[in-house]
Design a binder for these strands. Structure first.
Length: 417
RNA sequence: GUGGCCAUAGUUCAGUUGGUUAGAACGCCAGGUUGUGGCCCUGGAGGUCGUGGGUUCAAAUCCCACUGGUCACCCCA
């Protein structure tokens, strides 16, 4: 027990991995139903890609990235989120030239060097989707519908969808000035943290958890009330569409996301089944980002969802799938030549797609039976000299203990799962 | 990065006001049928009590440091 996994990283062990596979299957299926295609990008990228897209002043870039110099002195970073890489790939491979709208999804590990706590790891996993090339509010809503459909198919019901509009390059700067002016006026009532935020990222003061801040900023102007006509229209349309497809939501004028690139729609799905880190998924529109990363001006929307947090909710609500899959057949061999025969036969059956297991430890019959039981094998066939000579054996059904004589020649025909 | 709590078998934990061979349950291994599991019974293996220092005749137990875990802040998935 000398080596240990790095702080904030976890092994996903047999017994746990089944739940992951279940989630992954549902994600792939729903993504396909919504016509999103999978994209896989490298786990690391040039550091500048993230600092430029996420924003120099964000916490993610400032203090949470796994950044290091490789052997050629290039600064590389383990990806802290998925959107930047996807857009880089979109631009680099000219995906926009092949079709005006690109709908892709991803699933994989992300890295952030934070202090771990409930629902937060240094290596965590997300799935997410991006729709690049359209400014239609249909897609803003499709993102939430997509995420909610995945949750619904997984049996998750404890969640809340919050939406907001963070404006665009036309209306946000004006609003920001207004907000800063107002916050400066009441600065003395703000917490030290918020006073710092006032300089760095004033919008963030709005979603402070500090009770004093909440009270002090109660009547501060909100972005959603100072949107330009284009943004108002978009936001209104998003709400209409959400209503039209029957998705429940709450407008949260204080919802601000931690990444700078969002424009117009921002949304977050939270769950009370989680601890203090209660965001299950989040996302929004990023109409300026592609251009900022060196592509043609191209609008886009996306979301990202945390798999560990999803699993936590699943666990709490008792929706974790049971892991009961065992081999269909377990050979119990009495001696060496029977073992060799069983091994050969197992190989043949496995090639036919039948899950077969046998004993590799030279154990007693009793121990082999115990092993078959522990592994949840459906059937057991005991082979010894007698069986090999006669070509017949007993097929034992481990569910009810019943035995039936079968021919060793065609075992597969006798198995029914 | 800051703070609270925690650290004893593979796992979950117990361990009396410091007192000599550190326990339980589950799990694991073996036996209880000359070739048959689940339940039950019997036995067995398995712990430098996180690490290092200190106090003491004596430390798993008290003190300090470190490491690790966990929860919270910050922020976010």
């Amino acid at each position: 027990m000398k080596f240990k996994s790095i702080k904030g990283t976890k092994d996903i062990l047999p017994g746990e991995v089944e739940a992951w596979q279940h989630v992954e299957r549902v994600v792939h299926r729903v993504m396909r139903d919504f016509n999103y295609r999978e994209i896989r990008t490298p786990v690391f990228e040039t550091t500048a890609l993230f600092s430029r897209s996420i924003g120099e002043l964000t916490d993610i870039v400032n203090k949470e990235m796994y950044t290091f110099l490789d052997r050629s002195e290039e600064s590389v970073t383990l990806k802290p989120e998925g959107t930047a890489s996807v857009l880089r790939a979109y631009i680099q491979n000219n995906l926009g030239e092949q079709s005006p709208l690109v709908k892709v999804y991803y699933m994989g590990p992300m890295f952030r060097q934070e202090r771990p706590q409930a629902g937060r790891l240094r290596q965590f996993h997300q799935f997410g989707a991006e729709a690049i090339g359209s400014q239609s509010p249909l897609l803003d809503v499709e993102m939430t519908a997509l995420a909610l459909e995945i949750y619904s198919q997984l049996g998750i019901k404890q969640f809340e969808l919050k939406i907001n509009s963070v404006g665009c390059e036309k209306c946000r700067p004006q609003y920001k000035e207004l907000l800063v002016a107002e916050l400066t006026r009441i600065q003395s009532k703000l917490s030290p943290e918020s006073q710092a935020r006032l300089k760095q990222n004033p919008l963030r003061v709005l979603d402070s958890k500090d009770e004093g801040d909440k009270a002090a900023t109660k009547n501060v102007p909100l972005m959603k009330d100072h949107l330009c006509t284009e943004c108002v229209e978009h936001f209104t349309k998003v709400q209409q569409l959400l209503n039209a497809i029957g998705i429940k939501y709450a407008i949260d004028g204080r919802l601000v996301r931690g990444l700078d690139y969002y424009t117009k729609t921002a949304y977050e799905i939270t769950s009370t089944a989680l601890g203090s880190q209660d965001a299950l998924a989040g996302g929004g529109r990023y109409d300026l980002l592609v251009e900022k990363l060196g592509g043609k001006p191209t609008p886009g929307v996306g979301f990202a969802a945390g798999i560990e947090r999803l699993l936590m909710v699943l666990e709490k609500s008792g929706n974790t799938p049971k892991d009961e899959a065992g081999p269909v057949l377990f050979f119990v061999a009495l001696d060496n030549s029977s073992l060799t025969w069983a091994f050969a036969e197992a190989t043949k059956l496995r090639a036919k797609g039948i899950a077969v297991e046998l004993d590799y430890l030279g154990r007693s019959v009793k121990a082999q039976m115990r092993e078959a039981n522990r592994q949840n094998a459906r059937y057991v066939v005991v082979v010894g000299e007698t069986e090999l000579k006669s070509g017949k054996a007993k097929l034992k059904d481990m569910r009810n203990g019943g035995e039936q004589e079968i021919s060793l020649e065609r075992i597969d025909g006798s198995l029914q799962s």
